[in-house]
């Protein structure tokens, strides 16, 4: 890594201009990837807590009694497809195709909202089946983990819609394509966390 950075730096030295970046890479993008790296430790901790406690149901329901795999499979599929629409938005933004960018951003947000809606439905169903937040260690750790993920998706939806509004009114400070790309990175990260949650929490029985 050191060598990569330094070679880039040398190549850059010849470049005039003081808005310099030693690596030639964008500050925002470096910061975003680092942030996503730190998020791995956040979700890792929540997933580990769930793994430790998934079998401790007390008098409440067991995971296999409440999970509705077909339903969750559909909402997982929806979130996965939102990654496709997101990457198409990023690709359109790089081509400066504003119409497509706007369209894909809105579709992505809608898919995300569908996922969150599904989660709300799922939580309600669990609650009605006697699995409240504090029913058991399993239920608390499940709700904290998937709830955190849901909050991340919700924040993503807000960012997507805000971004769309800002693009439309030409209010994005800095590079438009890069801003779309950064929100895209966040969105994809939320998706890959769900890829893990879907397998480890839903598909592998306790």
């Amino acid at each position: 890594m050191w060598f990569t950075l330094d070679n880039l730096a040398t190549a850059h030295d010849t470049h005039e201009g003081a808005a310099h970046s030693s690596t030639g890479l964008s500050n925002v993008k470096l910061g975003m990837w680092l942030f996503l790296g730190t998020e791995c430790l956040l979700f890792g901790g929540l997933i580990s807590t769930y793994m430790l406690y998934r079998g401790r149901v007390g008098t409440g329901p067991r995971p296999s009694q409440v999970f509705d795999i077909p339903f969750t499979s559909v909402s997982s599929f929806v979130l996965l497809m939102s990654s496709l629409t997101m990457v198409l938005a990023v690709s359109a933004a790089h081509k400066r195709d504003d119409r497509s960018t706007n369209l894909w951003l809105v579709i992505t947000a809608l898919l995300g909202a569908t996922f969150v809606g599904g989660q709300v439905y799922e939580f309600t169903a669990f609650y009605n089946e006697g699995m409240g937040f504090s029913t058991s260690l399993f239920s608390s750790s499940f709700f904290v983990l998937t709830g955190f993920h849901g909050v991340h998706v919700t924040v993503g939806i807000i960012m997507l819609l805000a971004l769309r509004g800002m693009l439309k009114n030409n209010k994005v400070p800095g590079s438009r394509a890069e801003t779309v790309e950064m929100i895209g990175l966040y969105w994809h990260f939320v998706d890959i966390v769900w890829i893990i949650i879907f397998t480890l929490i839903y598909l592998i029985p306790a």
Binding site: D6, A9, H12, S22, N27, L30, G31, L34
Partner: peptide
């Protein structure tokens, strides 16, 4: 956390010309 991300990006990206890591 925000401070850490900021300073890491600063150190990696904002060095003067010729300021190699070593």
């Amino acid at each position: 956390l925000t401070g850490a991300i900021n300073l890491i990006v600063t150190i990696l990206n904002m060095r003067a010309p010729g300021m190699k890591l070593m």
